[in-house]
């Protein structure tokens, strides 16, 4: 993140842990304070639930994955780097849990057969586009409900691009935070965002909107 944006972000984060702040909670978590765990869970479970909901197709797995995320948060609190942002750390754990789920899920493997390997825009981008169009659900672009169409198309983005879109647009995180969560350079996050949006524009034909 550039210095201006970082300074703006820093205004929202106290340097000295206040009672009930994330920084204070993680210290208590690390000490095994069950009350702190309840507070962390109540502060983040809705965000994490919705993040996971948009990343997995099997609805019955969402609660299990959320539970796994918070178990890891609790068990790993001692390893948390206080120089990092706690919320980004929780999202990173959630993303890793989602990735583990993707690997295990046979349905997801089938779903991802057309996912481009080089989703930052490789030489196969044009071919990926052609295949993506061929694989679109029937009549998706003719649906009257534009929101439903968009949801279907977002689901069809390559995993890494979809993750960036979800974290940016629905969770309103900064690109710097997303870079930390996805453990990739800021430039890669921006590329994924650009390719995702370009892909949605092509699918929707909204260039002249």
């Amino acid at each position: 993140m550039d210095s201006t944006a970082q300074n703006k972000r820093n205004l929202d984060v106290a340097t000295v842990p206040r009672p009930g702040s994330d920084e204070e909670l993680v210290v208590r978590l690390a000490a095994g304070d069950a009350g702190a765990f309840d507070q962390v869970f109540d502060r983040y479970h809705k965000q994490i639930y919705n993040f996971i909901r948009k990343q997995v197709s099997e609805r019955e797995n969402i609660e299990d994955l959320v539970q796994e995320v918070f178990l890891r948060v609790f068990k790993s609190a001692k390893n948390f780097d206080p120089e990092k942002k706690f919320s980004s750390w929780v999202y990173k754990i959630a993303l890793n849990e989602v990735k583990r789920h993707w690997k295990k899920s046979a349905a997801k493997q089938t779903y991802s057969l057309n996912t481009p390997v080089g989703d930052e825009g490789s030489d196969s981008e044009r071919q990926d586009f052609i295949e993506d169009l061929r694989e679109l659900p029937e009549n998706v672009l003719e649906r009257e409900n534009f929101s439903e169409t968009l949801k279907v198309l977002i689901d069809r983005l390559p995993d890494k691009q979809r993750t960036v879109v979800i974290l940016k647009i629905y969770h309103e995180l900064t690109f710097e935070e997303i870079s930390e969560i996805c453990e990739c350079p800021l430039s890669t996050v921006l590329s994924r965002m650009r390719y995702a949006v370009n892909k949605l524009r092509r699918w929707l034909g909204v260039d002249e909107d």
Binding site: K46, Y49, N50, R53, K54, F146, S147, E148, L150, K151, I154, V165, I169, Y170, V197, L200, R201, L204, V206, D209
Partner: peptide, 13 residues
């Protein structure tokens, strides 16, 4: 416009 449409196409559950 597209980002706005994406933002509004789905509410938090």
């Amino acid at each position: 416009k597209l980002l706005d449409k994406i933002k509004n196409c789905e509410a938090q559950e």
